[in-house]
Amino acid sequence: MTVRPKTLAWVAAQLADGERIVGVDILVGGITAEMRRLTIAGPDGTRALVLRSYVDVPHAKDALTREAAALTMLAATTVTAPELVGVDALADECEYPSLLMTALPGRAVLDDAGLEARIPLLARELVKIHALQPVERPPTYQTFTTAGSVIVPPGADAQTWSAAIDVLRGPVPSYDGRYLHRDFQPGNVLFDGQDLTGVVDWAGPSWGPADLDVAHCAANLALIHGPARGLEFVAAYEAAGGLLAKAPADRRYWLIRDALSFSEELDAVTGAWRAAGRPDLTVRTAEQRLDTYLQELGGRHH
């Protein structure tokens, strides 16, 4: 078993009478948490659960509390997400803060093949998420990238990056608040064939501009599949009925802000993508695509 003893006992206590754990598989692709898929056998056959454990992560309590609240709220909506089985946010019973949830069918798809069909489905799902009206709003979004924290890749277009960094020095645009997933991207959306089967990783729901979620997914698509795919997603979101900032400069602010945030974590994100089956996504490839993407966003122009 690759689950620690106390955590294993806690999971067993969440199961129905007659159920037992018969298999544990490591899930790859995550960055901050250990993810395990548990096969559960019982009188009615087998089912799968997913265990998320945060090992030495300072924000574990907040992330698990937010995820538990999100999964509880989502159960009554048309957005397909895992169902909450149990949570131990303070590690009172587990070795580390943990959350147990149902496993959804399908898998995250990072392949280039079939992307044309997936982009509109991603866009429509994000529009549904942004339409949610929770009784209790999640915390206001946070962004941590500053003009001083951006890491300019070697060989990048200096004029483009200088102009883009200047955008971060400007005022934050006003916005209409929406319910945000805050890490909506291909690694957190599951597909079975060409069918979207659900959205996972609800550890950071926030209240903020729809543009921020859209910008995050667009930047991921640009780095995974090529710079043009980022703006293609923005267009697909609008085509699906999503509402973005009216002023072009405001849209550009959010797109550039999220793109620049990747400059600080290319090692981590590309490592996760390679582990998920994209060995071609090296740090250097991502740096080059990020540079081109910023140029496409108009980083050359003030």
Results as ranks from 00 to 15, higher is better:
P43C: 07
L64T: 06
A81D: 06
P139I: 11
L71S: 00
M73F: 14
V55R: 15
H59K: 10
G86N: 04
P105K: 10
A70G: 02
A76H: 13
S53F: 04
L90V: 12
A89I: 04
A76I: 05
Q133V: 12
A70E: 04
P120I: 01
E83I: 02
T72M: 01
D56R: 11
K128Q: 15
E67L: 00
L100R: 07
E67W: 04
V79Q: 13
T80S: 12
A81R: 00
A123N: 04
E116N: 03
Y54K: 01
A70Q: 04
L99A: 07
A108E: 00
A48Y: 11
K128D: 14
A68N: 05
V57K: 07
A131Q: 13
L104A: 08
L71V: 05
D56K: 09
R47K: 12
E116M: 00
T72I: 00
A117N: 03
Y96Q: 15
A113K: 01
E93V: 07
L132M: 13
M101R: 14
A48V: 11
Q133P: 06
L84C: 00
R66A: 14
R137T: 15
E67R: 01
E116S: 04
G106K: 08
C94M: 09
R47L: 09
G114I: 00
E136H: 11
A113D: 08
V79E: 14
P43D: 15
V127E: 09
S98W: 08
P105A: 09
A70I: 03
D62K: 15
A75K: 14
G86Y: 02
R107Q: 14
R47D: 10
P138G: 12
T65P: 06
E95T: 08
A76S: 11
R52Y: 00
Y96G: 05
P120R: 05
A75N: 12
K61H: 14
T80Q: 14
A131P: 06
R118S: 02
P139T: 10
H59L: 11
V50Y: 03
A108I: 01
L126D: 04
G114T: 02
L71N: 02
A131H: 13
A113G: 01
A75Y: 09
A63D: 11
P134D: 07
E67N: 01
E83Q: 15
P105C: 09
A41V: 12
A131K: 08
A81S: 11
A123T: 04
P139D: 12
D112A: 00
D62E: 15
R137C: 13
V127Y: 08
E116L: 05
P82L: 06
P97Y: 09
L115E: 00
V109E: 03
D44G: 09
A91M: 10
A89G: 07
K61T: 15
T80W: 05
R118H: 01
A123F: 06
L132V: 12
D56Q: 10
P58Q: 07
D88I: 07
T78I: 06
V79M: 13
V85E: 09
G45H: 13
G45T: 10
A68I: 04
A81W: 04
L84N: 02
G45C: 11
D62P: 01
V87I: 09
